[in-house]
């Protein structure tokens, strides 16, 4: 099969870890030694073999465990997956995009056969086999968006396009950086991003929106976002903040390497064919500080980024409290040597 799926947890005993191979392909998000917002979108074309860019939807060693964690989140709070009534067609578009991509890119794990609108889907890692009728919701156990995103890593939002704006009106959100789908659903592009500091003044969202309104069919784009998380918790939701908030207060110099994680989002954007909606997959990758510092270039660079970031951003990203602890840890891996441009290890 070429890849074993880890048996690991993202809660409780937190047994999540990255293999050496997973560390080597980690999507380190900083192309230079400093960070500021930018629109920075590039075509989401098949990239470097073995990297997270190789395929449209990356499937990695955490797949099965992440899907297990998603099912647990949904069992506890079904509101993490919602679709306003007019978004069902966009959900079918998404189901088609993911099934076709995965069956093409990972034939050893996924298969899709079609006889007109009668489709047959096999997902071997999750041991799912399903016959259904495309565009007929009654033939699936969930709505189309929920069905396929219970089988796909990363969060998903679906945006309807109208009135020269994008409206977030459906989503599967269980691995989020502290925002609530239930609260934000129905908002315009700027409203949804309203809590983000500094970026509005920089007109980042004006430019991003203008770009996305003309996003074309067959021409997806991607960008990175990032934050910090204590313990490998995928579900850092506002809903559960009272449960995970206290973890920030118990980190020590002895435990930071193991407990502090850089959390990277590989965000892609695709125009959907039938609905003219846009899907926004937000794929979360976690890496422990002790794993990250095994790549000297990344260790040096992360130290510099955290050191120089404006306090407003560190506050918004939720790590201002532990910033000194992080700098103490990371500075030991920064000898001041120059780093090469780009994100790849030297």
């Amino acid at each position: 099969m070429g890849l074993e799926f880890n048996d690991e947890t993202f809660r409780g005993d937190y047994t999540f870890r990255n293999s050496a191979k997973a560390i080597a392909r980690f999507p380190f998000p900083f192309a230079e030694d400093s960070y500021m917002y930018s629109v920075n979108m590039e075509p989401h074309l098949p990239g470097r073999p073995g990297s997270v860019f190789e395929h449209m939807f990356d499937v990695d060693e955490h797949y099965v465990a992440e899907m297990r964690d998603r099912a647990q989140v949904l069992a506890e709070d079904p509101l993490r997956c919602q679709s306003l009534p007019h978004m069902t067609l966009a959900g079918w578009d998404l189901l088609e995009l993911i099934m076709e991509s995965k069956a093409r890119d990972y034939p050893q794990w996924f298969s899709l056969t079609k006889d007109g609108n009668r489709w047959h889907w096999i997902n071997r890692p999750l041991q799912i086999e399903q016959s259904f009728t495309f565009l007929d919701e009654t033939t699936l156990p969930y709505g189309p968006m929920e069905y396929i995103t219970r089988q796909t890593q990363g969060d998903f939002t679906l945006q309807d396009q109208r009135d020269d704006n994008l409206w977030i009106e459906a989503g599967m959100v269980t691995t989020q950086a502290d925002w609530s789908l239930d609260f934000d659903i129905g908002m315009s592009f700027h409203e949804w991003h309203a809590p983000v500091p500094l970026a509005h003044e920089m007109r980042v969202f004006d430019r991003a929106l203008k770009f996305l309104l003309n996003l074309q069919l067959g021409a997806p784009v991607r960008r990175f976002n990032w934050t910090m998380t204590v313990d490998p918790l995928l579900d850092t939701s506002p809903e559960n903040y009272p449960k995970w908030g206290p973890s920030k207060t118990t980190m020590t110099p002895e435990t930071i390497g193991h407990r502090q994680h850089l959390r990277v989002e590989l965000q892609t954007l695709h125009r959907l064919p039938r609905s003219n909606a846009i899907v926004f997959p937000i794929r979360c990758y976690l890496i422990k500080f002790e794993e990250l510092v095994t790549v000297p270039k990344w260790a040096r660079r992360l130290h510099r980024v955290v050191r120089d970031i404006p306090d407003e951003l560190a506050t918004y990203k939720g790590f201002i409290r532990n910033k000194p602890l992080m700098l103490d840890y990371l500075s030991k891996y920064d000898d001041g040597a120059p780093t090469s441009p780009g994100i790849w290890p030297e």
Partner: peptide, 13 residues
């Protein structure tokens, strides 16, 4: 932060 769908502001612990 305000949700038109819920017609309410957001309260966070």
């Amino acid at each position: 932060h305000y949700s038109r769908r819920i017609a309410a502001f957001q309260g966070v612990n």
